[in-house]
């Protein structure tokens, strides 16, 4: 569905951020993009929806070459690409509902968006999504009144209201505590599988990526140096991506991760309702499976 061919980005400063990257993401496939700071992860996902203009190369989304689009066609293409940000990027002085509805801006006229008169079907869908991410009571709160995890849930709902075909996720957990990080990663991966969405997730936290994502791509200095499943990420591979370091604590030991995950679920008392019942169900299911 998404096919990147020989993508290169050189910034005006002369820095080569991407050096001939080729990557294919199938429909419904979730890819975690790992690599050290400055490896070009952020640049890569931003060239896809052209928040950053690529220097050369092709980006085919369902056969349409994105870098060649004019501004009107680009706006239409952007509607189908949802984006989730590290610092959540909610418009702080707007309400939760306005933030979620802004996911529809590419579909409604300026006048409708100005007077905040969105079609009822869209408002229904926005409420459904808020409920799904566990924030149904928060719709009229201002975005800056929410906690980090709650803001990221609103960011997820906004991206999904675009009814996207692919999600670009830029460090979704880097501003969150470890537990919230897991909840957010779980929510994102669940939603992608529910909706058959493809996703590229930039992530610093390698163990977290290995826990939730089946395909890992390693980027170093603008080039792909690893593309495979989490089990293949050995100490040598991690050294390829990040450089020399003692990786024994990071590399997956067969079977140990699942239990560790369940232990993290024991006291989910401060979770929003929907997410809580969800993770309980999940944990219960897994325990039943093990017996």
């Amino acid at each position: 569905m998404l096919k990147i061919e020989n993508l290169t980005k050189r910034y005006p400063t002369g820095d080569l951020a991407l050096n001939g990257v080729s990557l294919e993401v199938a429909k419904g496939e979730v890819v975690a993009l790992i690599g050290p700071s400055g490896a070009g992860k952020s640049t890569l996902i931003r060239t896809i929806n052209r928040l950053v203009e690529p220097t050369s190369g092709r980006i085919l989304l369902n056969g349409v070459n994105l870098p060649s689009l004019g501004s009107r066609a680009l706006r239409r293409a952007r509607r189908t690409i949802g984006m989730i940000f590290q610092e959540f990027a909610l418009v702080e002085r707007l309400t939760v509902m306005e933030n979620v509805l802004s996911g529809q801006l590419g579909y409604v006229s300026f006048w409708r968006s100005l007077i905040r008169k969105f079609p009822q079907s869209i408002i229904d869908e926005a409420f459904r999504l808020l409920e799904r991410v566990g924030l149904e009571e928060f719709y009229d709160k201002r975005a800056d009144a929410l906690s980090g995890g709650q803001r990221q849930r609103v960011g997820i709902a906004r991206a999904l209201l675009q009814n996207p075909e692919i999600l670009l996720v830029d460090e979704p957990t880097a501003s969150l505590d470890p537990k919230t990080s897991r909840q957010i990663m779980r929510l994102i991966t669940e939603l992608t599988s529910e909706r058959g969405l493809g996703a590229i997730i930039n992530i610093h936290d390698v163990p977290l990526a290995m826990l939730f994502v089946k395909r890992i791509v390693g980027l170093r200095q603008g080039e792909i140096v690893y593309d495979g499943d989490p089990d293949g990420l050995t100490s040598e591979r991690l050294t390829d991506i990040y450089g020399e370091e003692d990786w024994t604590a990071t590399v997956r030991k067969k079977g140990s991760d699942q239990e560790e995950e369940d232990n993290g679920e024991e006291n989910d008392d401060d979770l929003p309702q929907a997410a809580m019942s969800l993770s309980r169900r999940e944990a219960a299911g897994r325990q039943a499976g093990r017996k």
Binding site: L51, M83, L105, Y107, L168
Partner: peptide, 21 residues
């Protein structure tokens, strides 16, 4: 905040909508 602008731009909004949101 540049990220808030990026986020609205990424939804496929027009220039006027970007100003407004």
């Amino acid at each position: 905040d540049k990220e808030q602008v990026e986020a609205i731009r990424a939804t496929g909004s027009s220039w006027l909508q970007l100003m407004n949101y």
